[in-house]
Amino acid sequence: MRIVIVGAGRAGLSVAIHLRAGGHDVTVVDRDTALTARAFEQHGLVALVGDATDALLLKEAEVARADVVAAMLRRDADNLAVALLSQAAGARRVMVRMRDPEYRSVYERAKVDRIFSEMDVFIGAIGTAIEHTAVRNALLLGKGLSVAFELEVPSESAVVGRPVSAIAADPGFPGSCVFAAMHLPDGTIEAPRGSSVVQAGMLVLLVASRHELGTVIEFFLRKA
């Protein structure tokens, strides 16, 4: 894919390096000459210097040919301008890094394809870890109404040795909970099926509504 990353700071550059390693055609844009020099000299990225809210600079970056434009500048107002200009130029998809939650509705009205909020990730991970110590990693979904999280199944749990179909049919199993993945002891990942058996020490990836999160955790931690 052809990708334009607007903003060559730590986050933007890291994304650009990751995508370049994946074989994508990546261009970074930033007004800071030191950042663009680092992107070019240390990482071999195509880097343009200038104000990305200038339509002429975005034209030079060929956003009209871009499969994705990711606006990752320090100010939401600038990211919004980049998004609108890129859309007008014909970019296939536009994504933004949101700093201020007050901009979410503005981005949505602008029909930005994807909005990424570091604060949402932080709140989801830290907040869930504080409230539920058994949770390994967590991510808020659906505007914070649902949570995707990892849970290690204790050896004494009542679900050990039971197939997923039997667990899901248990009257105490929360209705909003969905098995998303199972990390097997040998390191492989399995897409859960009805016949998949939960093992002691296994990491399970679950998705549940936020208000039932505590109930889901209690269900998996209850002893046989």
Rank of each mutant, 00 (worst) to 15 (best):
A16T: 00
V63N: 08
E118P: 10
V121T: 13
A110E: 09
G144Y: 11
L139E: 14
Q42M: 11
P171V: 11
D113A: 11
I167A: 11
A181K: 00
Q199Y: 01
H43K: 01
F220Y: 12
D78C: 04
Q87G: 15
M119R: 15
I189C: 07
I17D: 00
V207Y: 07
A83R: 07
G22F: 00
R2D: 01
V69E: 04
E156L: 06
H183Q: 11
G172M: 08
V46E: 12
L48N: 06
A52E: 09
I5W: 00
V204K: 05
M202G: 06
R114F: 06
M1L: 04
R75A: 14
L141C: 05
V106W: 05
G161M: 06
P174R: 08
V121C: 04
K143V: 07
L45I: 03
T33D: 14
V159C: 08
S105A: 14
L221S: 10
H24K: 07
D54H: 10
P101Q: 04
E218Y: 00
Q87T: 05
P171F: 07
R114G: 00
P101G: 06
R31L: 02
A208D: 04
I217S: 09
E41W: 09
R114W: 09
G194A: 09
A66N: 06
F179V: 10
E131N: 12
A16N: 00
T128H: 09
E156H: 14
R136A: 13
L85F: 05
A81E: 04
G187P: 02
E108T: 13
D32I: 07
S209W: 10
V106M: 12
E41V: 13
V164Q: 09
G144C: 08
V63M: 08
F122N: 12
R74K: 12
A47V: 02
A158C: 09
A16I: 00
A37Y: 02
D100W: 01
I5L: 06
E218L: 08
V153Q: 06
P163Q: 12
R162F: 05
L151F: 01
Q42T: 10
F219W: 02
G7C: 03
D100S: 07
M72A: 14
V82N: 04
V4Y: 00
G161I: 09
A66G: 05
M119H: 13
L145T: 15
V68Y: 03
T27D: 03
L45V: 03
A181I: 01
L184W: 02
D100K: 08
A21R: 15
G194Y: 10
I217F: 04
V46Q: 11
G90T: 04
V96H: 02
F40Q: 14
R104L: 11
R74L: 12
A138W: 02
E131T: 13
E102Q: 12
L140D: 14
F173G: 13
V94P: 01
G124C: 03
V4P: 02
H18M: 06
G187I: 08
E108V: 10
T36A: 06
Q87V: 06
F219M: 06
A71S: 09
D113F: 06
A71D: 02
A21C: 00
K59T: 15
T215D: 15
R92A: 13
L141T: 07
A166E: 15
A88Q: 13
H211M: 11
A47M: 04
D54L: 06
L221Q: 14
